[in-house]
């Protein structure tokens, strides 16, 4: 029996380089990166500190621009967009999950989740529905009115994930999502990400140091000294 055809790539990175200047010195953070990620994949991006993982994630998420090469998502060259259009693109297509959750401490959980929806044309009632749905997906319906300081680390990260998925983005980008959590909470978060990938078809790219976390992904790629490889470099 024939296997079903593979879905087309959602992310295409070609010959991407990223350089930074520090004084008179030029730092080559990423060199000749080529990468394709298909819709519905859960990709773990691993590598030692300083290998350029977060820089690559920033380029994919449109938070930064490559020095050379092209980054296309859903056939859209995001490296060529103006700042304003890139911001609008991020609002529609990307959800970010950060290592330290990065919730606004002055807002309750539901208000934090609502933030990306403020950039849409949804009215208040629709926004509330969307927020309730996202909180239900991450299992935090009963904690909606709590402030971040009243939540555990694992719960805060769940709110962070709810915020990332509330607009139903094309890509979910996670930067060390379990890096600040104990094993149990980390496992819960990984379970959640896996469920989002498996049950909701979310395309996820996750930066991690942790082989335990990367084991949950459908594919793992390695970055070392700014270059990609299919296997870990010792």
């Amino acid at each position: 029996m024939d296997s079903p055809p593979l879905p087309p790539p959602i992310l295409i990175i070609e010959a991407v380089e990223k350089q930074f200047r520090r004084g008179t010195e030029t730092l080559h953070i990423l060199q000749g990166i080529d990468l394709q990620v298909r819709r519905g994949e859960f990709v773990a991006l691993m590598g030692p500190s300083g290998s350029g993982k977060t820089t690559l994630l920033n380029l994919i998420g449109g938070l930064d621009r490559p020095s050379r090469g092209r980054v296309a998502i859903d056939d859209q060259r995001i490296d060529q967009l103006s700042d304003r259009r890139l911001a609008a693109w991020r609002a529609r297509h990307v959800g970010f999950v950060f290592q330290l959750y990065n919730l606004l401490p002055v807002l309750t959980a539901d208000r934090n989740v609502e933030l990306p929806l403020l950039l849409t044309s949804l009215n208040k009632a629709r926004r509330r529905q969307q927020v309730a749905l996202a909180l239900r997906v991450v299992g935090l319906t009963d904690r909606a009115r709590h402030y971040p300081r009243q939540l555990s680390g694992g719960e805060q990260q769940r709110v962070g994930i709810a915020r990332a998925i509330v607009t139903d983005p094309t890509l979910l980008l996670c930067d060390e999502p379990t890096g600040d959590l104990d094993r149990k909470s980390g496992d819960d978060i990984l379970d959640l990400l896996q469920a989002l990938n498996r049950d909701h078809g979310k395309t996820i790219i996750m930066v991690t140091h942790d082989p335990h976390a990367s084991a949950r992904a459908t594919r793992t790629i390695y970055l070392n000294k700014g270059q990609l490889s299919a296997t870990a470099v010792a």
Binding site: L63, R84, A87, W89, R90, A91, N102, L115, P116
Partner: peptide, 13 residues
Amino acid sequence: EELGVLKAMGFDN
């Protein structure tokens, strides 16, 4: 940092 997060979400300049 919070401003950076807001911008990452799509809040433009």
